[in-house]
Design a protein around this nucleic acid. Structure first.
Lengths: 165, 165
DNA sequence: CGAAGCATGTAACGTGTTACATGATTAT
DNA sequence: ATAATCATGTAACACGTTACATGCTTCG
């Protein structure tokens, strides 16, 4: 019972939330994420779901929808256990992950103060614009998590003035 | 002139900072990052550096160090241009990236309030512990970026109390 | 009725991880 | 001297991206 990747964990969580549904529905949800990390590409999701089934974490049932064939998956008890393990893994949850701005900032003394200031201004403007948009309109928990995250990021962006000097 | 991945961008930045140095030195630096994203695995870095050379962004020179052969790389003018493009790309810098806690939080209503509270407490404790450690002792900019990021994350963690209800 | 887009995939390719190999250096 | 660790890689494998294919449905 090897550990889940974050993509697998999130997919299992989707199946747990929704009950029987398709790989396609999962790709849609991922694509609606505000993070570029969750590309929701079919070439990632369909084979990954298949692998989860092979591991006994999902089970499939063929369903008919009008004329067209489709495959619904639902989470198994084993899958539920794996999901909780992934979800509640404090070591992984406490990691820093990847932040495209943080990564660039630490190298920003390679360019001029003017360029540094310009990047910072650009990112701040884009952040304000992104923060003004409603995301996950019918998913209160997701929206709340996102909004609190955006708020604390605004705090960080404000604190970054030292980068211009 | 296709765009750089973040790994490639960071590697180019390392060569730009250091002047001629080896792939191994880059793996070391990545491994010292506080983020689990920067694994610094040799199997990722060595071939990636080779590809950057093939694209004309790095040039190599064989150097001797004592008895052993080694290869030093340095950034070319073309590489410097590509690096600045990557570094100052506001669209990418403004992205949300991947956050292991954020991802889990949005699914946390799948478990009990007690479990949610336990995860949050665990992450907060680990955050405090991580924040107490000095990181990048001889790299002031990196340290400053890291510390400001950790501080704003502490703000977020405090704001997350709603997750327990 | 034809075009656009939705739903359901598959295949090739590139790249990151894991595991291994091997020579040099340092510590016991 | 021998074990551990550093320095320098390589190879097999797993997985994500990009691009394509194809049947259905909706809209103008």
């Amino acid at each position: 019972m090897s550990r889940l990747t974050d993509l697998e964990g999130a997919a299992l969580a989707e199946f747990a939330k929704r009950g029987p549904t398709t790989s396609y529905a999962v790709t849609r949800t991922f694509r609606e994420s505000p993070s570029e990390f969750w590309s929701g590409s079919a070439g990632a999701v369909y084979p990954m779901v298949r692998r989860l089934e092979k591991r006994g974490l999902l089970k499939s049932e063929s369903a008919e929808q009008g004329r067209r064939e489709r495959t619904d998956y639902s989470i198994t008890p084993l899958g539920r256990a794996a999901l909780e393990h992934w979800l509640l893994d404090g070591d992984r949850a406490a990691g820093l992950g990847f932040d495209p701005l943080r990564t660039r900032l630490i190298y920003l003394d390679l360019v001029s103060p003017a360029q540094r200031g310009a990047l910072l201004a650009d990112v701040r403007a884009k952040h304000r614009e992104a923060a003004s948009k409603t995301v996950w309109a019918d998913f209160p928990l997701g929206r709340k998590v996102h909004e609190s995250w955006m708020a604390s990021r605004a705090v960080w962006l404000k604190a970054l003035d030292f980068i211009k000097d």
